[in-house]
Simulated assay, not measured.
Amino acid sequence: MKKIITALLTLTMAASLAGCGSKPADEPTKSPETMIESAVDFYTEVWDALGEDRQFAAVGGDAEHEAEAPAKFAMTDENKETFEYLLHVNDELYDMLDDDTATLQHMMNTNTFSSAFAKLKDTSKAEEFAEDYKAEIQGQHWMCGFPDKVVVISVADYVMMAYGAEECVDDLVEACSEVAPDSTVLVDAPAVLD
């Protein structure tokens, strides 16, 4: 009798332990949330993920932090006009961004590729920022070279915005999703409306 009770207890324990570590098959696995220490560090990781074969001659940052890679762009009163010119950002969009920002532009023609990775002051405004940025880019009167598309990607408390040649922008989206699998493309649209 003791053997039967011992066997039943062993089976019951084994069955209950087997269920402890498993989760239902229909429960989706979530990507770990991307932790960002600085805009420059994150954008550098994305730039490196492109690999040398997809990188191009580029310059990033403001006059004080300029580099041939993603670099800090200080969001100061002195730099505001330059940032707005390079990224085609209006005053309202500029005011939505925090000082933790990195930029990268094509060295020969900013319409080939121009981008920024910036922290939002209010993360609940990411979609609003994305739609307003798309409208701002699509409302431009381009004079020297027409960019193909505009994208805005949400990553944690930040947005990645870019416009330019389709291949360059698509490569950026792919590299960003490699580095931050939890990133979300909020806008992927033509830069020029017919």
Rank of each mutant, 00 (worst) to 15 (best):
L104G: 00
V89E: 08
N109V: 01
M96F: 08
M108D: 04
F113N: 04
L97Y: 02
L93I: 11
L104K: 09
Y94R: 10
V89Y: 15
V89F: 13
T110A: 07
L87Q: 13
M96L: 13
L87C: 15
A116I: 14
F117A: 01
N109E: 00
M108K: 08
L87I: 09
Y94G: 08
L97F: 03
D98C: 09
S115M: 04
H106T: 00
N90S: 11
Q105M: 15
D100R: 04
D91H: 14
N111T: 08
L87R: 06
Y94W: 09
D95V: 00
N109T: 03
L104H: 02
A102L: 10
D98A: 14
N111K: 02
F113M: 07
F117Q: 02
S114G: 10
H106L: 00
A116R: 05
M107C: 12
L97S: 04
T103A: 10
L93G: 01
D91T: 14
M96H: 10
S114V: 12
T103E: 08
N90I: 13
H88S: 09
D95E: 15
N111R: 01
H88E: 09
N111A: 04
M107R: 03
Q105T: 11
N90A: 11
M108R: 11
E92M: 15
F113I: 09
M107F: 01
Q105N: 13
Q105Y: 12
L93T: 00
M96K: 15
D91I: 10
L93M: 05
N111P: 10
T101P: 10
H106S: 02
H88D: 12
T103K: 13
L104P: 00
D100S: 06
N109G: 00
D100G: 07
D100W: 06
V89A: 15
S115E: 04
A102E: 04
H88L: 15
N109L: 00
M96S: 14
D99L: 06
T112Y: 02
M96P: 02
H88V: 08
D100V: 02
S114D: 11
F113A: 04
N111M: 03
A116D: 06
H88G: 01
N90Q: 13
D91L: 15
L87K: 09
A116V: 07
Q105E: 05
D100N: 06
N90G: 06
M96Y: 08
N109C: 01
T110Y: 09
T103C: 05
F113K: 03
F113G: 01
L87A: 12
S115H: 04
H106P: 00
A102M: 08
D95Q: 14
T103V: 08
T103I: 06
D91V: 13
D100A: 07
T101W: 12
L104I: 02
H88T: 04
M96I: 04
D98P: 10
T101A: 12
F117M: 03
V89T: 09
S114I: 05
T112V: 07
L87G: 15
